[in-house]
């Protein structure tokens, strides 16, 4: 029943290639002299992307008092890294966001979970460290492997869900059927699309944060944010159970005297501020 990693990679040969616009964006933003104008020139080639970006930038989540109506202005006000990360999230959700004909889970709820994880991870990270922009992207992308498996290996992922529904954890079910977890599959995409090293680490190690060799604080924040999103029921992952958070990751962000309720209230509030902008609010909510 089990497939080798090579078989998985082979069956992913029809994975979409990295969109040109991201390739160009990474190239431009890697230059030390990169300016708001450079970023705007790249992103504004795609009008659909630009419209979505501006909708996200103008959501209450970013708290801008005056509407921004150009990418250049968004870069000036929010910062280049913020806009770059926004473009990455929006593009990936575009490429992988369409609902498959017969998905083994609710894809919209899965993206809401990813967004919930992103908001939670960023908020948690910023209690101790500066700028959680990269962590936000890591949160959006942490389960990209599940989306890929659900899209490109539907039969096998149905088998995974069958095992999972019999009471086995999702990770164990994936290993039993595929010999690999969604985290390892997500990493394949991260490498193929040449994601920054820290983003690759957040995807690959969000379930075993201690094994990462880079960006341990960011990986830990996504590990914690993932379970917080489940605890607050922000969206719905195909693993609904809250899994134990690694104690050392927990201790990295929380002291016993911290007001955890206040932090969770903020996460709930910020999530509701941003889910509309990503077009993810459920119809009955």
């Amino acid at each position: 029943m089990q497939k080798s990693l090579q078989a998985i990679i082979d069956s992913m040969s029809d994975l979409p290639s990295m969109p040109d616009i991201l390739e160009e964006l990474f190239r431009v933003t890697n230059k030390p002299t990169c300016s708001s104008k450079d970023v705007a020139r790249v992103l504004e080639k795609d009008q659909g992307l630009t419209a979505k970006l501006l909708r996200v930038a103008n959501s209450p989540f970013y708290g801008l008092s005056r509407k921004v109506d150009t990418v250049e202005r968004a870069c000036t006000v929010l910062g280049l890294n913020s806009v770059k990360n926004m473009a990455l999230s929006v593009t990936i959700m575009d490429v992988f966001g369409s609902v498959g004909a017969r998905s083994s889970f609710d894809v919209v709820e899965m993206w809401r979970h990813n967004l919930g994880c992103a908001v939670a991870a960023k908020t948690v990270f910023e209690t101790r460290f500066k700028s959680g922009d990269d962590v936000f992207v890591g949160g959006i992308l942490h389960d990209i492997g599940k989306i890929i498996l659900d899209t490109y290996m539907q039969d096998e992922y149905f088998d995974v869900m069958k095992v999972h529904n019999s009471g086995v954890t999702l990770l164990d079910s994936e290993i039993r059927v595929l010999g690999r977890t969604h985290a390892a599959v997500g990493r394949i995409l991260a490498r193929r699309w040449r994601f920054p090293e820290n983003v690759e680490a957040m995807i690959a190690f969000h379930h075993r944060p201690k094994d990462t060799k880079v960006a341990i604080e960011q990986v830990s924040a996504v590990h914690v944010g993932n379970e917080i999103a489940k605890a607050l029921m922000l969206g719905r992952s195909n693993e609904m159970l809250v899994m134990p958070i690694d104690k050392s990751c927990w201790d990295m962000f929380f002291n016993s005297g911290d007001d955890l309720v206040q932090l969770l209230l903020r996460i709930q509030e910020e999530f509701s501020q941003i889910e509309d902008a990503y077009g993810l609010r459920p119809k009955n909510g």
Binding site: L232, M233, L264, L265
Partner: peptide, 10 residues
């Protein structure tokens, strides 16, 4: 403690 805080926040 996370469960209690989450219940409270929700």
């Amino acid at each position: 403690s996370l469960m209690k805080a989450a219940a409270s926040a929700r």
